[in-house]
Amino acid sequence: MTEQTGQDGRRPANDGPKAAVRNRAALVAAAREIFAEHGLEAPLSAIARRAGVGQGVLYRHFPDRTAAVAAVLEENVGQIERAAGTAGMSFADVLGVLTWHLTESSAFIGLLHTDRPAGRADIRAHAVGLSGRVERALRRRLPDGHRLSGAQDLTLAVAMVSAAVTGPTREERERRALAAWRLLGVELGPVRAFGG
């Protein structure tokens, strides 16, 4: 077995846990991009290449496709939950965060349509729980008497907007999402990642 060395002839330092955290973050970001560009059936090897890691590193973090999709979805949902739990965030602000995730992640759009019969059952089963978390987070900030406060109105509005989020570029998807919210008569805060 040969030992890898840097340009100066020394072995690179082993960053241990720091490298694992960095690699996982790079893999989740790459998975988000690859799934957005090529759908949930994109080759996992493309995710590893985009993240700049080997396939062994990918499989150490995500042993299968379901785990990679779940990691992207969990990050989406976690951001929406954190936004909804932050003082000073209005319902419109949280909808802006939700909309950012819709325009960035085709996997997230699929989450919001978990009742569709097509698709992978393993991913769909996990997505049902995450979809409920998104609705609960949004309802935490939904003002009394808001036009979406009816029993199914919020769920239906989010599904309608997510169905409109199509297009080859992020800008086109955002333009369509904004138009859909406007047609529903719903005020929207800045479209951005939470904390961004």
Rank of each mutant, 00 (worst) to 15 (best):
L95I: 11
R10N: 12
G189Y: 02
F91R: 03
E172D: 12
A151W: 04
G54V: 10
T166F: 05
R176I: 02
L183S: 15
P168E: 12
R136T: 10
D153A: 15
I34M: 04
E37Q: 13
G195P: 08
E172N: 04
R136A: 15
V97S: 06
S106Y: 05
E174M: 13
Q79G: 14
A20Y: 12
G52Q: 07
E104F: 00
H61P: 09
G195N: 08
P43F: 08
L184I: 08
L184R: 01
D15A: 14
A121D: 13
R176N: 14
A180T: 02
H101Q: 09
R22W: 08
L40F: 07
E187I: 00
R141V: 14
V94D: 01
E33C: 08
R141F: 08
V158G: 03
R10V: 09
D93N: 15
A29M: 05
G119P: 07
A13F: 10
D64P: 03
D144V: 14
A31C: 11
P12W: 02
A107V: 08
S106N: 10
A51I: 12
R140Q: 13
L112M: 11
E104H: 05
K18V: 11
L102H: 00
R124I: 05
A30Y: 12
T99Q: 06
G6A: 13
Y59N: 01
P168D: 15
G119D: 11
